[in-house]
Computed example of a mutant assay.
Amino acid sequence: MAFVDYQPTLGNFWSSLFKSDFVGFQWFEYFFSGQDFVQVMRNTLVSSVLTLSIGFVVPILIAVALNEARLRWFKRVVQTTSYLPYFISWVVAANIIITLLSAEGPINQLLMNWGVVDEGILFLQDGKYFWIIIALANTWKDMGYNSIMYMAAISSIPPELFEAAEVDGAGRLKQIWHILLPMLRPTIIILLILNIGSLLNTGFDQYFLLGNSLNRAYSDVIDTYAFRYGIQNGMFSYAAAVSMFKSVVAFILVVTVNKIAKKMGETHLF
């Protein structure tokens, strides 16, 4: 579909696909030369890098902290609290975030009570706040679920290593730094490779629900851009080309980062 001028009026899907005119790379050239390309790529990359920077570290910290917790009830409460957002749909999560960040919401009330601002900030109406908001929202929603993999890796570490380190006089911080984190290294590298491959796959729901006409210059990413042109404007082939570009870049990133990890002697996918 990305290489033809798809016309859905030529019959059923397959007949319309094969009867449509072949245009080669026309839709890709249209995307690369369009005035929206730079803005969409900027928004996608900046928000993805921010999400990766924050959202990749926080689950590791949660897993390490829970492993060090000694009170079982406290550990269970933190686990449940951190896991719960993952099972909430983005429709519900977006409404929670919109309420918290509204002009008269709890965040603005705290800022005014502390004397940080004199009047409420329109967070979701001012595009300059959008990237950090979406990065924190993604982190909040996925951090508990993502920490499960690290906790599973921690549980497989032989306890004899920690006992030997304790006998040698190593405290908890030294045990974390010299035993726990090095043992987590293979898991961290594998997940990092996969996350880097998903840099352009920012997601659709959160950007569509939290974005609006006032912050579109910052909230319009590849997924929402393809939806707007493909579904709302009926440019199916153009949207397919944009999505195919995203998939090709993701494949190249995974292969490249995996090759770098392999050359450095680290754990790799293939």
Score class of each variant (00 low, 15 high):
residue 153 A to P: 11
residue 153 A to V: 07
residue 153 A to T: 10
residue 155 S to Q: 12
residue 156 S to A: 15
residue 158 P to S: 11
residue 159 P to L: 10
residue 159 P to R: 14
residue 160 E to M: 05
residue 160 E to A: 05
residue 161 L to T: 07
residue 161 L to Q: 12
residue 161 L to H: 05
residue 162 F to W: 06
residue 162 F to C: 02
residue 163 E to T: 00
residue 164 A to R: 04
residue 165 A to P: 04
residue 166 E to W: 06
residue 166 E to Y: 04
residue 167 V to K: 11
residue 167 V to F: 08
residue 168 D to V: 15
residue 168 D to L: 13
residue 169 G to T: 01
residue 170 A to V: 08
residue 170 A to K: 00
residue 171 G to D: 15
residue 171 G to V: 00
residue 172 R to H: 04
residue 173 L to E: 05
residue 173 L to R: 13
residue 174 K to Q: 03
residue 175 Q to H: 00
residue 175 Q to A: 12
residue 175 Q to S: 14
residue 175 Q to I: 06
residue 175 Q to N: 02
residue 176 I to K: 06
residue 176 I to C: 06
residue 179 I to R: 08
residue 180 L to F: 04
residue 181 L to P: 01
residue 181 L to R: 03
residue 181 L to I: 02
residue 181 L to V: 04
residue 182 P to G: 02
residue 182 P to H: 03
residue 183 M to E: 07
residue 183 M to K: 00
residue 184 L to T: 05
residue 184 L to G: 03
residue 184 L to R: 01
residue 185 R to C: 09
residue 185 R to F: 04
residue 186 P to M: 02
residue 187 T to M: 08
residue 188 I to F: 08
residue 188 I to L: 07
residue 189 I to W: 04
residue 189 I to P: 03
residue 190 I to V: 06
residue 191 L to P: 10
residue 192 L to P: 06
residue 193 I to K: 02
residue 194 L to R: 08
residue 195 N to Y: 07
residue 195 N to S: 13
residue 196 I to N: 13
residue 196 I to G: 15
residue 197 G to E: 01
residue 199 L to A: 07
residue 200 L to N: 14
residue 200 L to P: 09
residue 201 N to P: 10
residue 202 T to L: 04
residue 202 T to M: 07
residue 203 G to Q: 02
residue 203 G to S: 02
residue 205 D to V: 05
residue 205 D to I: 04
residue 205 D to M: 01
residue 206 Q to M: 00
residue 208 F to M: 15
residue 209 L to N: 10
residue 211 G to V: 01
residue 213 S to K: 05
residue 214 L to Y: 02
residue 215 N to Q: 12
residue 215 N to G: 00
residue 215 N to W: 08
residue 218 Y to K: 12
residue 219 S to N: 11
residue 219 S to L: 03
residue 220 D to F: 13
residue 221 V to A: 13
residue 221 V to S: 13
residue 221 V to C: 09
residue 222 I to F: 08
residue 223 D to W: 13
residue 223 D to H: 14
residue 224 T to K: 12
residue 224 T to I: 06
residue 226 A to T: 06
residue 226 A to E: 12
residue 226 A to W: 09
residue 228 R to V: 14
residue 228 R to W: 11
